[in-house]
Design a protein around this nucleic acid. Sequence first.
DNA 1: CAAGATTGACGAATCAATCTTT
DNA 2: AAAGATTGATTCGTCAATCTTG
Lengths: 155, 155
Amino acid sequence: VSPTSPNKPRWLTSEEEATWRALASVMVKLPWALECQLQGEAELSFIEYHVLARLSEEPDHTLRMSVLAELANSSLSRLSHLVKRLESRGLVRREPDPTDGRFTNAILTKIGYAKLVATAPGHVAAVRELVFDQLSATQLKQLNHICRGLLQQLQ
Amino acid sequence: VSPTSPNKPRWLTSEEEATWRALASVMVKLPWALECQLQGEAELSFIEYHVLARLSEEPDHTLRMSVLAELANSSLSRLSHLVKRLESRGLVRREPDPTDGRFTNAILTKIGYAKLVATAPGHVAAVRELVFDQLSATQLKQLNHICRGLLQQLQ
DNA sequence: CAAGATTGACGAATCAATCTTT
DNA sequence: AAAGATTGATTCGTCAATCTTG
């Protein structure tokens, strides 16, 4: 499709186009690389790792499913399927919230925590190697700022 | 998991951590938003759109499957399944390369091209709104540079 | 036999529908 | 009735195995 379309669509400049292609590639390849690292070393997907990680950040290693879904950038349905699998592996368990049975609490088990502790260093090393080792201190700040701006529009 | 682990894993600084969370969110939410836009307006996935778009950039609207897979950041297997679906919708067709039967050419059909022409303005508008309208000219350059750096490590 | 491509089985995400608790 | 959560059907991507052409 050529840039000579009617008039409504403001096309991308060649610099925007190049940036967009690079960004799109990063959005495909970076998650993939991290998936591979996690799958190879821990048989965990990226989102599974983060579910465990988020739970570990809570003092009681517990979060409501709906809150966890938000934190993990996941739909509730996806999370429900996913936690069921983690539960069958003994990494997480679920209980209805004692104070209000409509909520379900996801709870990190001892085994799940151990798994996370064993997995985290390798994962962090991969993130460091693939992302932060490639960025100067200035670029780090720039990227932070840029991402925050983009997130605003992504509600 | 706390930052007070043995010694091997150089943990992330709090600034790196914040940046990483923001970047991870962008990598999930931005593709999702664009998927929704394309699915809603054209019943195309992000990768399907880009397959059509890449084909349209060739003078003869033709690319070998293996080349197209590279350009679309896709495995050959994934592309094969995907193109089969596009073919069943009449948007693309496949032929063995006349000069060497080992290659398969994917060819954008008239219908596929029309679909792309109809879809592109809305998609570009979404990319503009979600990405480039959020970036200053300086940030555009920064993002371009950052992404290119990251891609180098992602081979 | 090697490279390009396809296939089928399986695993995981989505969507809509349903169930449960208040 | 509404919010939180689960479920099942469908679809898509992955992996490994296979097919095909030169």
